[in-house]
Design a protein around this nucleic acid. Structure first.
Lengths: 190, 190
DNA sequence: ATTATCTATAGATCTATAGATAATGC
DNA sequence: ATTATCTATAGATCTATAGATAATGC
């Protein structure tokens, strides 16, 4: 039963990883601790040796997940020829619509989070600020509007488009939502 | 205990009304049947005399709630001097941010719905089409972009702004999100 | 329509133990 | 190398709560 400290640390990572996927796919309430542990190939009871509570795990998962998203955008900002185009294309891709478990934490969980306690909401608030900063840096070519305001508008539009595209039960209409927003964001920045 | 058919029908309406508020405030999973019945001043058990199941009630509530939102926009479209301005101002108001129980079903429940069965998703899909039609009619002055595409973009932006504004645990930043999107939508249509 | 009840499932806790780690002895 | 201790995990169990049903009353 007992494993090396190293293996225990790896097991903990497996739990965080499985939770990251399941929570985004099925929601905060739609995912049980038992389910997460099963996905990590561990038993339910073992969970409480590594996390204080489910809420504790959720906070860790979201904090790390949001940071990952910001890092991805910052990397695009540094390395891409046309970072805004790449941000939009990846965000509004069909892949992102159909795989919430691998995608944006805002699109997957923001509605859930708005009903949760301060702790989790604060984590999302920090993640939001960092995301806006990343986007602001990406919107660097001359623009009539203040860049920060535009970053907020673009992020809102992206998140709304993803939430709606995932809700719609019609593949063609869902695609239309993603494409309309893709075109729209590009057009307005002519 | 037993009441007239008329009173029973009124009680049913009370249940639908209470559910409409509670489901939007606390989410589909965050609202119990017992809670809804209590809010309607009825007992838990009575629920199943009027609805087949909780899922059944949820469908009825969403269908009617979505239709109400569409009707509101159509009324603005018919009666307002500047319907787009009024749509945006009401949608992005501080009041709407803090009272999800009285607000847009997309902003309150779309994330939840994306994880539900076909029945409920189809209802939201119809509501989405009707909302886009209403918005398309409102966007009637000359525009370089196709009106339908613009309607989809504007609705996405509105929903995303509301979801994010409600998630953020900082009143000033939350206000900034609403105002940035308000200004942004107006600016792009100069 | 009320009241009591049933069944399922959730988060969380408890106990036992395999086996790793640390302390000790040669 | 031996012994003692520590700890990550398994498995069983507890408590609370959910949706739903059945029996009852007017």
């Amino acid at each position: 039963m007992k494993v090396t400290q190293d293996q225990a640390a790896r097991n903990r990572e497996l739990v965080v990883e499985a939770a990251g996927r399941l929570l985004r796919e099925n929601g905060l309430d739609g995912t049980s601790v038992a389910e997460i542990m099963q996905a990590a190939n561990l038993t339910h009871g073992g969970f409480y040796g590594q996390f204080k509570s489910k809420a504790d795990l959720v906070e860790e998962v979201c904090e790390r997940g949001l940071a990952r998203g910001v890092a991805f955008w910052n990397r695009l900002g540094d390395e891409s020829k046309d970072p805004l185009r790449d941000v939009i294309a990846s965000y509004l891709s069909a892949e992102h619509v159909k795989s919430p478990g691998k995608g944006c934490f805002f699109a997957a969980l923001a509605c859930d989070v708005s009903r949760r306690d301060r702790g989790l909401r604060r984590i999302f608030t920090s993640g939001f600020r960092a995301s806006i900063d990343a986007l602001t840096r990406i919107l660097k070519r001359p623009s009539p509007a203040p860049r920060r305001r535009e970053a907020i508008a673009v992020l809102s539009q992206l998140v709304g488009a993803m939430v709606l595209a995932r809700t719609i039960d019609d593949e063609a209409l869902s695609r239309e939502i993603a494409e309309a927003n893709d075109t729209d964001i590009k057009e307005r920045r002519r």
